[in-house]
Design a protein around this nucleic acid. Structure first.
Lengths: 113, 113
DNA sequence: TTGGATGCATTGGTTTCTTATGTATCTTTG
DNA sequence: CAAAGATACATAAGAAACCAATGCATCCAA
């Protein structure tokens, strides 16, 4: 099962940034795999979506990169900048608020809970 | 305060359909106002987003319409078709599942809860 | 009588994502 | 050892969903 792409829309940046908060540094491919395993294949980040997003976050100054070589293969690690860490907290808490609003709007909690 | 539009993306249809589940019939403008008041102005549905969405849902056969006149002013009521009701349940429960995934991914619940 | 609210709708542009493609290396398997 | 699949980066074309702006029209209150 995979969530409809419409549902997942708008959450990619937040997910990536939160992962980087917990893991200090990660590379693109690793992120796609981590999300897949953490969500039991329900969210699959495509590379066509991820790489432009990473580049955009870097251009915004929220991520920094460092390139490593594994044999002859390039691996580009991303880390949160100080600004990125701040923005991540803001984004995550905004998302938390939004989720509560959705739970209320969609009546997802039994009233007796 | 208003949620960033990026965050709200992809939830419009679900919200509209759920509202129609609870209210039998509603018209466009009413929907925008209801969402505003239910969310304390945090979600503001623009008309440029809403009307095309309503038309799309109608074209999909999920909504039916009936036009009424208030004085000389047209008011177009939307209701869920039987198919629409089924789809709404599916959408809402998919959204519930997705929200749980996001809560897990973003670590939004204290582990001792 | 003018501004604001009500109520419909479309158009042009942007953001965000998908699908497809490209290049290259490494590993596993028949 | 050849081929397929995994690893790893990236871009380009197009679709989907949305926003901002605008337009038309009615109603009401100041």
């Amino acid at each position: 099962m995979v969530y409809s792409s419409e549902l997942v829309k708008g959450t990619l940046k937040t997910i990536v940034m939160k992962l980087l908060t917990d893991n200090k540094k990660m590379y693109g491919y690793e992120i796609t795999q981590r999300v897949k395993e953490l969500t039991a294949d329900k969210i699959q980040i495509t590379e066509g979506a991820l790489y432009p997003t990473l580049h955009a976050l870097e251009a915004e100054g929220l991520l920094t990169t460092q390139t490593e070589y594994i044999g002859k293969r390039v691996r580009k690690y991303y880390s949160l900048s100080p600004t990125g860490k701040t923005r991540t907290k803001e984004r995550v808490s905004e998302m938390a608020d939004f989720i509560n609003t959705m739970i209320f709007l969609l009546d997802l909690k039994p009233k007796t809970a």
